[in-house]
């Protein structure tokens, strides 16, 4: 095991630890926690299989392994970003609905109070 692989392993292990801690402290919802757990395990696997990945990169004509890893990471992060944006959009829609329902119910409550006040 060379120093590069050792650093990669340590970084992946720390990332996994961070995800586990965030999950145990309820800072991440189950679904999100599971997703990040998958990424953390995947990073660990990449770190373990670094020599094999090096061979794969060479066979694909990529001379510089980090470029291959960065390319993979770029696509993974891009996908993760779009997934997070869908989550934000969904939550925004729910928030809008909540605001609208609250406002309508507030109006109905005011109307009821007024009616009650008017009646003898």
């Amino acid at each position: 095991m060379n120093s590069v692989q050792l650093i990669a392993l340590l970084t992946a292990a720390l990332f996994l630890l961070q995800v586990v801690l965030f999950t145990s402290r309820n800072k991440l919802h189950d679904k999100q926690a599971f997703l990040w757990l998958l990424f953390a395990v995947a990073s660990l696997i990449v770190a373990i299989l670094l020599p094999q990945l090096n061979r794969l990169a060479s066979s694909l004509g990529i001379a510089y392994l980090p470029a291959f890893i960065f390319m993979l990471a770029f696509f993974v992060i891009l996908n993760l970003l779009i997934y997070q944006t869908t989550v934000i959009s969904r939550n925004e829609k729910r928030l809008n609905l909540l605001i609208q329902k609250t406002a309508i119910q507030h109006k109905e409550l005011e109307d009821l109070k007024r009616e009650k006040g008017d009646s003898p």
């Binding site: 605001i99 609208q100 609250t102 406002a103 309508i104 507030h106 109006k107």
Partner: peptide, 21 residues
């Protein structure tokens, strides 16, 4: 007669509130 939205939702959000009502 009016409904007060607690935050500014834009024309779309405001109109949709009206349609829901």
């Amino acid at each position: 007669p009016h409904i007060n939205l607690p935050v500014n939702m834009g024309i779309g959000g405001a109109m949709q509130t009206g349609y829901q009502y």
